[in-house]
Structures are given as structure tokens and as C-alpha cells.
Nucleic acid binder design. Sequence first.
DNA 1: TGAAAATATGAAATGGATTTCATATGTGGA
DNA 2: TCCACATATGAAATCCATTTCATATTTTCA
Lengths: 329, 329
Amino acid sequence: MTINEIAKLADVSRATVSRYLNNGYISEEKADRVKKVIAQTGYVPSTQAQQLRTKKTKLIGVILPKINSESISRIVAGISLILSEHGYHLLLANTDNDEKKELEYLQLFQDNRVDGIILVGTIFTKEHKKLMKELPIPVVVLGQHVDGYSSIYHDDFGAAEAVTDLMIAAGGKHFGLIGATIRDVAVGQERRDGCLTRLKQAGISIDASAVREAAFSSESGYAMTKELMMTHPQIDSLFCATDSMAIGAIEYLKESGKRIPQDVQLIGFGDSKMGKVVEPKLTTVHLSYKTSGEEAAKIILELLSQRSETVREIKLGYRIVEGKSLRSL
Amino acid sequence: MTINEIAKLADVSRATVSRYLNNGYISEEKADRVKKVIAQTGYVPSTQAQQLRTKKTKLIGVILPKINSESISRIVAGISLILSEHGYHLLLANTDNDEKKELEYLQLFQDNRVDGIILVGTIFTKEHKKLMKELPIPVVVLGQHVDGYSSIYHDDFGAAEAVTDLMIAAGGKHFGLIGATIRDVAVGQERRDGCLTRLKQAGISIDASAVREAAFSSESGYAMTKELMMTHPQIDSLFCATDSMAIGAIEYLKESGKRIPQDVQLIGFGDSKMGKVVEPKLTTVHLSYKTSGEEAAKIILELLSQRSETVREIKLGYRIVEGKSLRSL
DNA sequence: TGAAAATATGAAATGGATTTCATATGTGGA
DNA sequence: TCCACATATGAAATCCATTTCATATTTTCA
């Protein structure tokens, strides 16, 4: 079934059928005829032909660093919620933390496969920016603040400061920090700096060798905590850049006979399900990932509708979720 | 940049450029010319025009019951892994466990928006089957066994039998079962039946009122366990259809002063991260979700390539992951 | 050496819609 | 009553590639 056949059957021109479908001028009489024919035939316009003609795909490319992660799936849930309300669909691209793939996808999506891109970012290189500059479609960056681009990000620095304050208030004297790669500005750099800033302000010194980098996994958190505690057994407060790392840390600490929080207190980031289940419950930072997904979707819709070049930036707040991994508050 | 401009610049016909792009007959000389022009202009063929002409989108629609779940994200990771290797992309559709939405998406994807569909299923109604029968593109069902369709599913029944045996061997006498809705054949029915079958064979009776249904969440697991233990305080073995439910159960049991596994032993399904972190570690069934995603992707690729109408069915095995939630094994 | 097969190329048809252009009619306001 | 404007319609152009058809040239092999 094509629009031509419908036109013939309804005895109108192809243009009239198109107008019926797109709310153009059409008389009631012909509208009825077309309606009837379409109902009878079950005709559905060819998406490809429409896309070719209108240059719109109703698709948003979502580039993800990984797919199998609680925070990511919350983000995607948020994006999907808003976009599907507006008739858009998600084209997923999983880069598995591979920068090359990320660039590949940016390029692939370039040639109007999608109407816009939401890039859930970790690391931004010059190449990223260069490619993004050339993109003829709107991009929204999620999770990182990138100058010159619409971005939704979290107050990682502020949140890190806040939890550090809590640990200080709870009597933390000897700190350890398990962070992420500083190439990841939000998770690695901001969170680390927020913590170090407050420690400094509070006059608490922290050895450079007590500041470590782990991968985004509990296994890595476990290993790093082990190294850290071996060399710095006096540590009584541990700042972990993600819940996964904190979970690994808890595991090691318990194994090595440390009591949490009496001997060592610690915090994480992400408000993950794991953190609610672990013993003791993890005190963590809630970063409303779902909301950030929703906001990113809203912005991309805005950019698509008005074709405005405005750069919008949204910094989302945080909420500290109290568990039992800190000493008395 | 269109193929026309490239053709003009390279002083060949449009067809020759197309042949260059699609490995048709072309002389070295002209190939070089075209190659050079394409390199200079950065020309990329229009996806929409290609799609219109070739009727292929290189897109696979993936219909998910929800997006924010560990098992689902593992499945998607598996699908994505295989499909991206073959140049396909994922078009995501999240139904939020809404049957209507599921049918909508099946219908939406129908008109060659995608080349094939992977339906991660929970509940199958007559309407599902009717719609699927009409689909002009291949469908693979994941997670449920549906007669007449290619499907990848897990040995839910066998796994349920196996863990029930374990609980019996560990001295379980009074059983409780927290299942999922039996409309979900795999998770609700098969797992329940596997358990009940073995209990019966072992001569262990279980009260109908000790067989409950919970939603797919720890909160619901908590609530159901509470109800169950109120009415059946003698229960010493609890079969939970999912890890989430089991996590909720553990929470309630601990709160109510029961020791796990001494007073009550229990198992879950899913081998989730939460289950590894909870105290005591959950004994659970590993269902290789990622593998099932991969297999589903492979099958859809097969169906796409040879256009064979063959129905393929793959039943995946299981592996019991020992935690500490069962009495001595 | 001659016929069949492989290689090479361009013109034109094709896919299926939307949109512009031209034209016609109906309607409201001055 | 006349002009401007909204409404209504179809023919034809357009979007941008792939593919078929026709035709020409080279190779290959008997």
C-alpha cells in the first residue's frame, strides 16, 4: 500500500491524501473518503519515504559509556519517559567506555540518522569537541559540564564537599580517597576536588598516596582499599567516588576485621540498590539520574522544536541518603 | 553533498558512484577519481535515501518490559554486543510492563521502521500472537517460550527444581513460596511449578496459602514475606522467584529476628549484584542474561540473512550460585 | 578465431512520501 | 461590489540513493 493507491481508491490526488495525513486543508467530504479507504486498507505511510522527504527521523541517538549499570539505566529510563511522550524513539549506542567508539558513533549519527544526540559522557577530549562542533544536529551532554554545549550535570563538587563535611563532623581524622580517573571530570575530578577542598579548609592533611584511583567496579574498589589500608592503616574515613567502589571497600574492610563505622567510616555516590542492601547500609549521595535523563530529553526537544542555538545548562542538586556507614551524625 | 554532486565532480555517472560505494563493477581509474572526490568532500550517503530504496534500516527494535533492571540491562548488553558487530543498531522501546504499549510498539515497528524485532517478553496474550503473526519482519522472543516463534528462554522449571532439591536436602520441612504472576509463564509459572513439583515428589506438603504472588520489587518481597510469616510462622524454607523478592524477604526476616539460614533458609533467581552484597549472601540461580541477549541477536541476524522461516528455539541452562542463605549443603 | 562470459558505464526507472506552484472557489469586510 | 484572505485541490518537483536495462569493451576458453 502506497499513498498512490490510496489516492486512486479515494479518487483524490496524492497531495490530498498527504494533506489528510498532515492536517492540511481538506474538505470534509474528501477527508471522509480518504479516511475510509485508509481504514479499509490498513495503509500506513512509509517511514523511510517520510524521512527522506522531511529530513526528520523522530529518533534521538543516545550514546552511553556502558549499558549495564544502575545509574545508566536510570538515565535511560528518564530519557525514554520524556521522549516517548513526544513520539520520539531512542537509538542506542553503547561505547563500552571506548573513546574511539564514542567518536565513531558521533560521526555515524552525524548524517541525519537521528534528529539529535544525547551524549552520556565520561571523558571529553579535543576530538570530541571538534566532532561535536561539526554536528549539524543538536547535542546535549549529560553528566558532564562542557563549555559551549547544552549540558545537564550534577553538583558533584558540592556533593563531595557536603559528604566530606559529614565525615569531618563525625570525627574523621585520617582520610583516604578512592576516586575515578581524573579524565572523567565529573566523577573523577570534581568529586575528588570537593573532598580535598574541604579537608584542606578543615586543616586535615591527606597524604598524596592516600588518594587513589579505581575503576568503576566493586572489585577494583576492593583491591584499592586493600592497597590503601596496607600502606595507611591509620585511615578512619574513606571517601569513595562511586557506590560500587564503596561496596568493594566495605567488603575488604569487613574481611580485614575493621568495624564500620567505628573503625572506618565511608561514603559512596549513586544511591544504588546495592548500597541499601549492604551491611551496614551505605551513606551515599543521591544524584537523581532519572531526572537528569528527563531534563536532557526536554532540552533536546526544545532545541529540536525552536531550532534555537541557545546553550542551556542545568546543574542538578543532590541529596544525601543516610545509611549506617558514618559515625554518629 | 549528494551522490549527484559527487558524480559531477568525479565526472562519472551517479550509477558509477553508487557502484563504487556498493562494490559493483568499476574500473580502477574511475574508482580512484570517485574516492578522491569523496575524501575531499566528506560525502556520506543519505541513510534515508538508502533505506527508501533498499527497504533496509539496519535497525532492530528491542521491546523491553522495563528498562531499569539488572537482568534487562544485561540482556540489552548482550544484544548490543552482537548487533553492533554486524552494523545493526538498537531501537529501544520501553513498555513499562504495559501490555497496551507492548502491542503498540509491535504495531509501530511493523511498517519497516526496523528490520527485525527482539521482544523481551513477560506476558503473552492472544493479541500478542495475532499481531506477531501479521508481522512482515522476523521476531525473536526472549525470556519466554512461545510456540511457533523463535525464542530464547531459560530452563526456569529445571532451575526451580534444582534449588528446591537443595533446600530439601538442607533439611527444609516447611516451605513458603513467593512467586510472580502466573501470567508471566517463565518467571511466575515455571519457577513455581518446578518448586511445587519437587516438593510433591519429596512428599512435602505446602499449604496453598503459603504460595504467594509478589511484584518484581524488594518492597513487594518484604510485604509478602511479612504476610506469609504472620500466617505461617513455622516456615523454614522460602522459595523466591526473583532476587529482588528475596532481598525484601531477607530484610523482613532479619527485622523479625529470624536467623538466616538457621531459622529460615531461602533462595532467589537472577544472580544479581544485590544478592552478592546482602548479608548473608544470597544463594541464587544464574540465568546468563547476557548470553540470552547475544543468542537472540544471533538468531535475528540469521533470520535476516537467509530469510529462512525456520523457527529456532534455544533453552539456556542455569548455574546455581552458592551464597550463605541455605543451610549446610 | 569466435562465442560466451566478465567487466564497465550511463540513462532512466524506482522507492513513497511532502511541498511548491498554480489555480479555483468561498467568505468577510470596506 | 470588489478586494483580500482563507479554504481546497491537483500537477509536478523534490528528497537521494539503488537497480534495471541497454550497450560497449575485454577476457577467457574451447
